[in-house]
Computed example of a mutant assay.
Amino acid sequence: MPCGSRGYDAGKKINGRKGLIVTDTLGRLVTVWVLAASWQDRDGAKGALLATYAATPIRHVFADSGFAGRLVDWARDLLRTTVEIVRKPAD
């Protein structure tokens, strides 16, 4: 991998890369998206969702709260894909 694909994530205090994965409901791998650690998860998720949209008929995606915000609207409007944010239980 090229040197430019590495970055620093100040929130997690790590150097390197991060990966986003999309699996189906059985846990089978659909898409892997690797990017520099300096990218925000929401920004990297756009690439992963685009790759998933092109490869499969998956149109409902579950994501954690790190992906909330404009990504949900972007996926709905551009990809006609529902991104459902799953939150941790209060207890």
Results as ranks from 00 to 15, higher is better:
residue 68 A to N: 05
residue 5 S to A: 04
residue 76 R to D: 14
residue 1 M to C: 07
residue 14 I to L: 06
residue 50 L to C: 03
residue 4 G to V: 15
residue 53 Y to N: 12
residue 13 K to Y: 00
residue 25 T to E: 13
residue 61 V to W: 04
residue 26 L to I: 00
residue 37 A to C: 05
residue 20 L to E: 14
residue 62 F to V: 03
residue 16 G to H: 08
residue 24 D to Q: 08
residue 35 L to N: 01
residue 15 N to L: 10
residue 17 R to Q: 13
residue 7 G to Q: 14
residue 3 C to A: 15
residue 61 V to H: 05
residue 36 A to P: 10
residue 80 R to K: 11
residue 38 S to K: 07
residue 73 D to F: 01
residue 22 V to E: 03
residue 40 Q to H: 11
residue 37 A to P: 00
residue 40 Q to C: 13
residue 72 V to Y: 01
residue 65 S to H: 12
residue 9 D to S: 07
residue 82 T to L: 02
residue 69 G to E: 13
residue 81 T to G: 01
residue 22 V to K: 07
residue 34 V to P: 01
residue 26 L to Q: 15
residue 26 L to V: 02
residue 46 K to Y: 08
residue 57 P to T: 13
residue 53 Y to S: 13
residue 19 G to T: 15
residue 41 D to P: 02
residue 28 R to T: 14
residue 57 P to Y: 12
residue 41 D to M: 08
residue 3 C to K: 07
residue 33 W to C: 14
residue 15 N to S: 09
residue 44 G to V: 13
residue 91 D to W: 11
residue 20 L to C: 11
residue 46 K to L: 15
residue 83 V to E: 01
residue 53 Y to P: 01
residue 62 F to C: 07
residue 72 V to E: 01
residue 66 G to K: 11
residue 29 L to D: 08
residue 56 T to Q: 04
residue 35 L to C: 15
residue 67 F to E: 00
residue 80 R to Q: 15
residue 6 R to T: 12
residue 20 L to Q: 10
residue 24 D to K: 10
residue 20 L to M: 07
residue 22 V to G: 03
residue 42 R to A: 10
residue 25 T to C: 12
residue 58 I to H: 12
residue 14 I to S: 03
residue 28 R to K: 10
residue 38 S to V: 00
residue 14 I to P: 00
residue 30 V to F: 02
residue 45 A to P: 02
residue 72 V to A: 02
residue 20 L to T: 09
residue 51 A to T: 11
residue 83 V to Q: 03
residue 59 R to G: 06
residue 37 A to S: 09
residue 6 R to I: 02
residue 8 Y to H: 10
residue 60 H to Q: 08
residue 59 R to D: 12
residue 63 A to V: 09
residue 33 W to P: 00
residue 5 S to F: 06
residue 65 S to V: 09
residue 8 Y to P: 14
residue 22 V to L: 12
residue 75 A to F: 02
residue 38 S to P: 00
residue 46 K to M: 14
residue 88 K to G: 03
residue 38 S to E: 02
residue 45 A to G: 03
residue 68 A to Q: 13
residue 62 F to D: 01
residue 69 G to N: 15
